[in-house]
Nucleic acid binder design. Structure first.
Lengths: 343, 343
DNA sequence: GTTAGCACTCGACGTTTTCGACTGCTAATT
DNA sequence: AATTAGCAGTCGAAAACGTCGAGTGCTAAC
């Protein structure tokens, strides 16, 4: 016979599960019926009273059942939830990803879309950080009279570009030489190692080209700098609305917050992975007004050569199936890491 | 004194404008008050009865005012609406764009975000088509043991990449030579000219490299092919929700339709520019279930060297400020064309 | 620590009523 | 023929009202 305390947790779990499932406050009677707790509703009521006092559940109004509070979800996530293993179909879907790994960007998009589908929620993924990447190759291509394109290839396979306006017309070969010089001198340099040695670079070409070299080298710096600002790819925003009109009118502000990538980036950045390789923020824990009714589940994925990995995750209503979501996110992160490190 | 028919159009205009503004069905009395039609409500009622018979307006229920039908909006757009010139602030905002023109992709994103802000609606932009672009340069860079990155630079400044797995290990220099060969042979070739002369290409390198050349050339073909599938960048989805809970519960399906880029692409493709350089689809005209209550305003922009331009536009509720939206879209298209052709 | 019993609360929901915004029609007017 | 005033009639929105029942907390007994 389980002691009082463990049963209370059982009750909390039951409440969370029922509420996630039915979207309605759950009462003592329904509870004993659906789960086979072998006690009477009255007993459950006592437990519920206690849980309420502990701030784990709350009643929307007097004559209604209880719903979990953010704290309740938190406890649930930390101590009670069971990770639901992926279904066969879900595994398969992921494996198809590996075959799409031709274009870096495209693969991230695929990944995030898949994650959105699997979880039926909004999925986000952070671009891998430049920081750990090394410069592999630099190219300068003439586009117009005084327009050129500076192209930077990183060891992660990411390609960055920037258009520059040259101070003076230049020949195609000259640009190419400049590219070669840059490639040589910066090869294998970490992308986060700034500033780049401008003087050395400039004096490495004959005087006539120095002005052009300066412009190009500046562009390189600029690319490397902007690479630190990470970006987010998102998918499945429609799921926000489809979630049963559940988030109701709050959906507008949520969408805004999501479009405002900065907010989300800061949040993801703050989130520390726990020993399970996951991090979860629930409701107010997001410390963001418009995300009060949402929860974020995230995990780090390794972007090739280790380095501080970027994150991926999902955003959904606090009332979500944490078990399923957490396992999907974790599996996705692992799988992606594997693909990336193979490539 | 205007004749009966012109007044009827005036009435239609007044109804559209009021309805757009107030979001409420508008009645005869309110109409004469707010606009200075110098007749009595009764007269207006007669006109309204006629307009209703013509299918231009409808009454949601007996004791309510009238709202425009899709047909009503259509007439309004075609014949009555006045293009509202941009404000100074809006012009300025656009001019800032020009300064961001460093990265092709980034600029498109900026553009679409700006358009979303200006119109307070969802903005979309199609990637410029490859078709008119010419191949400027091709690069092959070694990434891993047997992994290489094929990079294609087009005359529009767009950069495409693809990762390939080599059949056998290759040296960095060899890959570079392959890149050079490809660059030489395909230089200035239109990106839409397929297939590329594989045989010539392959036989242009020494036998030991032929297998690798084949792999790389295939990747090039693949890039060129996928370039025909155009993509869409979107911004301002939050505006859908913010529009006063106006589209109500329909917002879910709309978001879905938007995420499903194919639908939108087909639609944009079908839309023919009128003499004003704009095309508008209203309600059912979109011939798409979930877009029944939305309208699409689009314009073509020239992507550098003429060629069939891609489109940009906005998606919003049928009840939108067509005047403002149309002018914003048109101005944006023109401005973007200018920037692109300059660069 | 459990449980049955019970009085009590309060929102959800269906019904009824009131209110007023509009309309369409008719008949008079220009 | 077009316009207008006047008026009866319609019908939805909002408020007021009552009923119902799910769910609670408490007490007293086990």
């Amino acid at each position: 016979m389980p002691d009082t305390n463990t049963r209370r947790l059982q009750v909390l779990r039951a409440i969370v599960e029922d509420y996630v499932h039915t979207r309605e406050p759950v009462g003592s009677k329904a509870l004993v019926e659906r789960h086979n707790l072998e006690v009477s509703p009255a007993t459950i009521r006592n437990d519920m009273a206690q849980l309420e006092e502990d701030g784990l559940i709350a009643a929307p109004h007097t004559s209604a059942g209880r719903i979990p509070t953010d704290l309740g979800y938190r406890l649930f996530v930390d101590r009670i939830s069971e990770v639901r293993p992926l279904t066969r179909a879900e595994r398969r879907a992921m494996e198809i990803l590996a075959e799409t790994s031709d274009d870096h960007e495209a693969m991230l998009e695929q990944t995030v879309r898949l994650l959105a589908m699997l979880t039926n929620q909004v999925a986000v993924i952070q671009h891998p950080q430049h920081s750990s990447a090394k410069i592999r190759h630099i190219d300068v291509v003439l586009l117009g009279a005084q327009k050129a394109l500076v192209i930077l290839i990183l060891s992660t396979g990411k390609v960055e570009q920037r258009m520059v306006t040259l101070a003076e017309p230049a020949a195609e070969e000259d640009l190419h030489r400049i590219g070669q010089k840059l490639s040589e001198q910066l090869h294998n340099r970490s992308a986060s190692a700034l500033p780049i040695p401008m003087d050395t670079l400039i004096s490495s070409v004959e005087p006539a080209l120095r002005a052009t070299m300066a412009v190009v080298a500046n562009a390189v710096t600029s690319i490397l700098e902007s690479g630190r600002v990470d970006r987010i790819i998102m998918a499945g925003t429609a799921n926000l609305a489809r979630s049963g009109g559940d988030l109701g009118p709050a959906i507008g502000p949520i969408l805004e917050a999501l479009e405002e990538q900065v907010v989300l980036l800061r949040l993801l950045h703050e989130m520390q992975q726990d020993q399970r390789g996951l991090s979860v923020r629930i409701g107010q824990e997001t410390s963001h007004e418009s995300l009060q009714e949402t929860a974020v589940v995230a995990a780090e994925y390794a972007s090739g050569e280790s380095g501080r990995g970027a994150k991926l995750g999902v955003v959904g209503p606090t009332r979500m199936d944490y078990g399923a979501t957490m396992s999907a996110v974790r599996a996705m992160a692992r799988y992606l890491s594997r693909i990336l490190s193979e490539g």
